[in-house]
Amino acid sequence: MRIQVETTLNGEPTTFLCEAHHSLLDVLRNGLGLTGTKEGCSTGDCGACSVLMDGRLVPACLVLAPEAQDRTVITIEGIATSEALHPLQQKFLEHAALQCGVCTPGFIVAAKALLDANPNPSETETRYWLAGNLCRCTGYDKIVRAVLDAAAEMSSGKAAAR
């Protein structure tokens, strides 16, 4: 049974058709062509599919597509503005916090959710928050540094603006 869903995706009103059992991840990747959100497991274990739904960090593989009705969804494609990368994206580049890069979109979305809620996380808080995002290449060292550095830069930027 095809269901029509109306949602707000990366700020744009978006309508799509799906089956009841399709995941939001299926629809993003296959229906809407937004392949930035990755699939590492489809069982909630790896965080590669992280998106924000109504501002909350969720694994898109464990969200049914019809649940997006009337919600706002932000994916990796919606993190940068047309003028600039998000500081997290910039810091991931500067710290070489990606090797193969397949985990990167999920980490950036998850880290954004962290910094939205907690602008100055400790290393331990950052590590526990990101425990749902698997990276097999980096040993997490440079990822954690990139997130902490982005947090520092964002809060000093805010302090300067004040």
Partner: peptide, 23 residues
């Protein structure tokens, strides 16, 4: 030195295409 990788931008913005991203 430690320059930023050329393929980095595509990878932090979700534009890079991996195995399952092709159609």
């Amino acid at each position: 030195t430690r320059p930023i990788r050329h393929d980095g931008l595509d990878k932090v913005t979700g534009r890079a295409n991996y195995g399952a991203d092709f159609t």
